[in-house]
Simulated assay, not measured.
Amino acid sequence: MNTVVLIGPPGSGKSTLGRLVAERLGVGFRDTDADVEAVAGKPVSDIFIEDGEDRFRELEHDAVRRALTEHEGVLSLGGGAVLHEATQALLAGHHVVYLQVGLTDAVQRVGLASARPLLVLNPRSQFRKLMEERRPVYERLAVMTVVTDKREPEELAEEIVKGLPA
């Protein structure tokens, strides 16, 4: 089985659905944000604050590269991982699923008071801008798009599994 890669903005359900899809397929689940935190020895929000976004993106790209090489199963990428051109190239040939979520649902899931470094000033406006900037990249990389608004995780996981190549 090739790796199933879940992409999408914060609040789209990548981690939740990743675990459910992996469970249904009987494979492992891996989250590149967790990999970055393990390598850096600190949370993503601290990496942004202490080391800057450029350093975080380097760590993130390395985490994606390693995961795509080492892991067969379901892989969840951080929301901005796809912005790195070399990461985009690495995704070619993988079953990339874009989890599309509307602003209202994403905000409810993420909560704008959480530690999201790119949402510090005027979180709702920043979040909308972030989603609009990234949407074309998500759409271009995806071989499958799943709309997650107002849907239960179990239903979404089933749709993803059914959409996988035989």
Rank of each mutant, 00 (worst) to 15 (best):
R30C: 12
T104L: 12
T32F: 12
N2D: 11
D35V: 13
E159F: 00
M144C: 11
A81G: 10
A38Q: 13
E85T: 13
D31C: 14
N2F: 05
Q108N: 12
A67K: 04
G8D: 11
R151D: 03
L99T: 04
P10N: 14
E58N: 03
V64C: 04
I160T: 06
L83M: 15
G52I: 02
D149F: 06
L112A: 01
R66T: 05
V36P: 08
V110W: 02
V96W: 09
E154R: 05
L118V: 05
T148S: 02
T32K: 13
V97W: 09
V64A: 03
G52M: 04
G73Q: 06
V143R: 08
G78M: 09
A38H: 08
G8L: 07
M144I: 01
E139W: 01
E50A: 13
L141N: 00
L164T: 04
P117K: 00
D149M: 02
R55N: 04
D105Y: 01
T32A: 12
V107C: 13
D33M: 07
K42E: 15
E158A: 15
L99M: 02
V110N: 04
G11H: 08
A81K: 11
L164E: 05
G102R: 08
T148C: 07
E155D: 13
D46F: 11
P10C: 13
P117E: 01
V36R: 08
D105T: 14
V120P: 01
L118C: 04
V36F: 09
R124Y: 00
V5F: 06
A40Q: 15
P136A: 07
V137Q: 06
H71Y: 07
V137T: 12
E60L: 10
E132I: 03
Q126C: 13
A106C: 08
T104M: 05
A81E: 09
R134P: 09
G11M: 05
V39H: 12
K162Y: 10
F29M: 09
M131Q: 03
L25Y: 06
V82Q: 02
E154L: 03
V120L: 15
R57Y: 06
L103E: 10
V101I: 09
E53G: 08
E152R: 11
P165R: 04
R116P: 00
D46I: 10
E132R: 10
P136L: 10
L17C: 11
